[in-house]
């Protein structure tokens, strides 16, 4: 045993259950899918035995127009939802950090979306988006005339935006809480010093709050990106990837290939690609942002 583990049997024993679970439900299945990705494994057992097919699944994947569309959709979703969601989270966190009346009440209310299962959130938004008389369309009709309406979920231009808005709303309290903790860590006398230096409210945000949130921002950027790349439930419940595949994300496409079309081998290849892509993005973000902040 390496020397660092000497005399640490107690610590190792305590780590063991968590590590065992991780290995059992993440590492082992992932290794299996790496294996499957080189075969023509099907979901249901078939009379013909599973064959080793080499890189066929990967070749097919790179030539698959629908796969590239799914990547495009996932990237679009991520690029839209990450800044939008982080902006809402920060604004709400700043409001809740200020000395507003009924602050405790607002803090409690604002984390309610986190307590709802995502499927319930989707149901709520499905009502909001309803045509022709859902609440959002009722508002729209005030401006555009009584007959007008927007098919938020059914239009291939608007479906992705609809998913972005509901996703941001569904999970922003998590980022909001982390921002709130970050804001509370900013020393109050920095604001006072800035006030004496003649800083306006915007300048206090720009030169005190924002730089002090740097580490929080990096952390949130990474986890929100990963969360966005994994988009599945909202799409699965609300649009089923449509219309015209305009909301099919990588995970949704993987799910379709593996469980609807039963092509586990192909789905495994997609999952291996996805794992590598997500890891690379997270590591790049970390390296890039870390280097910039260190002097």
């Amino acid at each position: 045993m390496p020397t660092i583990f000497k005399g640490r049997s107690q610590e190792l024993a305590m780590l063991f259950p968590a590590m065992a679970c991780l290995v059992l439900i993440i590492v082992v299945p992932f290794c299996l899918s790496i294996g499957f990705s080189f075969t023509d494994q099907r979901l249901m057992p078939r009379p013909i035995p599973t064959r080793f097919v080499g890189l066929t699944n990967y070749e097919r994947m790179f030539a698959d127009r629908l796969f590239w569309q799914a990547i495009g959709n996932t990237v679009l979703f991520t690029v839209l939802v990450v800044p939008f969601q982080l902006m809402i989270s920060l604004c709400v966190a700043m409001a809740l950090n200020a000395a507003i009346p009924f602050r405790g009440l607002f803090r409690t209310v604002s984390i309610l979306p986190l307590l709802l299962p995502i499927t319930v959130v989707v149901a709520i938004w499905a009502v909001l988006y309803r045509i022709p008389t859902g609440p959002l369309n009722t508002i729209y009709q005030l401006f555009a005339g009584p007959e007008a309406y927007i098919d938020f979920v059914g239009g291939s231009d608007t479906a992705m935006v609809a998913i972005v808005v509901l996703s941001a709303w569904a999970t922003f309290p998590y980022q909001m809480l982390i921002y709130l903790a970050g804001l509370q860590d900013v020393p109050g006398d920095l604001y006072e010093a800035a006030e004496l230096d003649g800083a306006t409210a915007w300048q206090r945000f720009r030169f005190v709050t924002w730089p002090c949130l740097r580490n929080v921002n990096i952390f949130l950027l990474i986890i929100t990106t990963i969360q966005a790349l994994k988009l599945f439930t909202q799409v699965s419940v609300m649009t089923k990837g449509g219309p015209n595949g305009s909301t099919t994300t990588i995970i949704y496409y993987l799910f379709q290939q593996g469980f609807t079309s039963q092509k586990i081998g192909y789905a495994s290849a997609i999952s291996v690609f996805f794992f590598i892509a997500v890891t690379t993005i997270a590591v790049l973000q970390r390296v890039f942002l870390k280097n910039e902040g260190e002097q």
């Binding site: 004496l196 230096d197 730089p211």
Partner: peptide, 21 residues
């Protein structure tokens, strides 16, 4: 009058230096 318009400067116990500058 606003603090910055009073012609005063203050030195804080915690120094209150802007950490990123």
């Amino acid at each position: 009058t606003a603090p910055s318009q009073r012609g005063v400067a203050m030195v804080f116990q915690s120094y209150a230096l802007y950490p990123h500058m």
